[in-house]
């Protein structure tokens, strides 16, 4: 009950500054728009590069959205209260991440097929895009959150976060874009889904706990 309440207030906090939650989606749209302008407008070429373009766009949008995950709470001192709560810290972090994903991840997943349409993806590929994003964006956010915790309060946090975290995004990017690509060529994609689901489970088990450990070493001071 208390945990549901916390989730509710996380969503409420996000709702009160809704415009900020829309920035990553705008960035996503803009990144994808750049490719037809810079590569080619030929439908065949676009459909070929589309899986990579959409996935890279999502990846960057996710990273940009991560910046606000702990920043405001750290500045206002709310993070201290989370650390001093009698609830388990990793559960609190998981709730926070879940709210973050609902507010910032889900809209990306809703917008992605539309942008896929502009890039001439087939219907199977659109489906694969949505499924792979459903499995993949939570992993991106979990890994990104570790980076945010490590870089909390440092100068140039945003850039540093990218340098630290992008190498760890590579497996998700490979399997996510390959799922969309394979579906585009009417090949089976269960293998990629399986791998993404496995990664998701693995990161769900370990990441909240790792983030709690990082926050406890005194990064918040």
């Amino acid at each position: 009950m208390a945990l549901y309440k916390l989730f509710h207030y996380e969503l409420l906090t996000a709702k009160r500054s809704l415009h900020e939650c829309l920035y990553p989606i705008m960035v996503f749209g803009l990144i994808v728009t750049l490719f037809p302008l810079s590569v080619s407008t030929d439908p065949k070429t676009l459909s070929m590069i589309a899986p990579g373009v959409v996935w890279v766009g999502v990846l960057l949008a996710c990273l940009l959205s991560m910046d606000r995950l702990f920043r405001e709470d750290w500045e206002s001192g709310f993070l201290d209260r989370m650390l001093l709560s009698s609830q388990s810290l990793s559960v609190l972090i998981l709730i926070k991440l879940l709210a973050h994903w609902v507010v910032l991840g889900l809209p990306l997943i809703l917008v992605a097929p539309l942008l896929g349409l502009f890039l001439h993806l087939t219907y199977q590929a659109e489906l694969a895009l949505v499924v792979s994003l459903l499995l993949g964006t939570p992993i991106l956010m979990l890994i990104g959150a570790m980076g945010v915790a490590l870089t909390l309060g440092l100068r140039n946090q945003g850039l540093l976060l990218m340098i630290l975290v992008i190498p760890f995004f590579i497996p998700v990017l490979i399997f996510g874009s390959s799922a969309v690509g394979s579906a585009n060529q009417q090949l089976s994609v269960t293998g990629q889904y399986g791998f993404l689901a496995g990664l998701l489970l693995l990161s769900l088990c370990f990441v909240p706990w790792t983030i709690a450990g990082i926050l406890r070493i005194g990064v918040a001071n």
Binding site: T151, R155, N156, L164, T210, I214, I217, N221
Partner: peptide, 18 residues
């Protein structure tokens, strides 16, 4: 990059190790 960005050595050591 992370190691050189953290000025507090106590925190920096642990963060780098993690």
């Amino acid at each position: 990059a992370l190691q050189s960005a953290i000025t507090d050595r106590q925190v920096g050591d642990k963060a780098s190790a993690i």
